[in-house]
């Protein structure tokens, strides 16, 4: 990866975010946009785990659940403001990822996939079954974060959907900025070395277990913040936020868009968030078409959408 990747990524992303609202037919699209950014944030974390370090997780929605329920529970029980609760949620996710990651990351490939899947399901089950605490499958309310009022007091008066569009965009861009910093840093290189050849990484002095764990913890924090954003925006959470389908969605978005690059993964997040909206026109064939598109992309563009498209544009055939 060339160092200019960071500026290039931000130069593509920021104008798109700024310009997109011009084409929104209704304020509903601000909501879709915010959802893209929340997924975009989560998949940026997945790029660090999958694209940089070469590890897999089918359980990261579990961390989103922790981020979301931290925002719901901490204000009620400890009087912590919801935004601060999101930060604490991220810390808890990081600690949990560290604890869970240590034994789990010794596993490779599909063993790791199944173990992480198990972790995600475990979180989902706890959130669903501990009704006394979480309200069970019916979910629970999240206190108003007060962020919109804060913006108002600063003279920024926006509709709720617009406000969350911009806030989610800012959080995602911040996440992208960190991930891009990491990519071309010593840590990023160590992670990519682990991906490239574990044995060679070890011989140049990389503590492979430690770096895998770092990638796992960082990506868990991304997922946790994404979950918190969902909770804060909707002012309501259900255990569904930690459902394993979300974990699988994030991996799919990452791989479909191009796991090697943050921009690719966000592109994947945008496509897979938008497609179902577009495909609703096909009613009962929606899921079928979605599945078909995913299969065709992976067969004909195994590197993912964005890298393949870029290669076409540059005319490099390899």
């Amino acid at each position: 990866m060339r160092p200019s990747h960071k500026s290039a990524t931000l130069l593509v992303l920021i104008p798109l975010i700024l310009l997109a609202p011009v084409f929104f037919p209704s304020s509903f699209y601000y909501r879709v946009g915010a959802l893209i950014f929340i997924n975009g944030l989560a998949v940026t974390g997945m790029v660090i785990l999958i694209g940089y370090a070469g590890q897999i997780s089918l359980g990261h929605a579990g961390f989103a659940g922790i981020g979301a329920y931290s925002c719901a529970l901490m204000p009620v029980h400890w009087g912590i403001p919801p935004v601060l609760a999101a930060v604490f949620g991220a810390v808890i996710s990081a600690l949990l990822a560290w604890l869970v990651g240590r034994p789990i990351l010794r596993l490779k490939g599909y063993y790791l996939a199944v173990a992480t899947l198990g972790f995600g399901i475990l979180v989902y089950m706890v959130l669903t079954n501990e009704t006394w605490l979480t309200g069970g499958p019916d979910g629970m309310n999240v206190a108003d974060s007060g962020l919109r009022d804060l913006a108002k007091s600063l003279g920024i008066n926006m509709k709720n959907s617009e406000f969350w569009y911009w806030l989610c965009a800012i959080v995602m861009v911040a996440g992208v900025w960190l991930a891009m910093n990491l990519q071309d840093s010593p840590t990023g290189r160590a992670l990519r070395a682990v991906h490239g050849s574990e044995v060679a990484a070890r011989t140049v002095g990389v503590d492979v277990a430690r770096y895998k764990l770092q990638a796992f913890v960082i990506s868990a924090v991304y997922a946790s913040v994404a979950g918190s954003m969902v909770a804060l925006q909707n002012e309501f959470v259900t255990p569904d936020v930690s459902g394993y389908m979300h974990s699988i969605e994030w991996v799919t978005m990452t791989v479909l868009g191009g796991a090697g690059s943050v921009l690719g993964a966000i592109f994947g997040a945008a496509i897979l968030t938008l497609l179902p909206q577009v495909l609703t026109a096909f009613a009962e064939y929606e899921q079928l078409l979605l599945g078909l598109i995913m299969m065709l992309v992976m067969i004909f563009m195994p590197d993912g959408l964005l890298p393949s498209i870029m290669r076409r544009i540059r005319g490099k055939d390899e």
Binding site: M1, P186, R189, A190, R192, A193, G196, S197, V206
Partner: peptide
Amino acid sequence: QIFQNMTVLENAIAGFHLTESG
């Protein structure tokens, strides 16, 4: 055992892991 996911230069830089990581 080359890092195929890196450039030639990055492969060489990876050799400096112990001195460059902080």
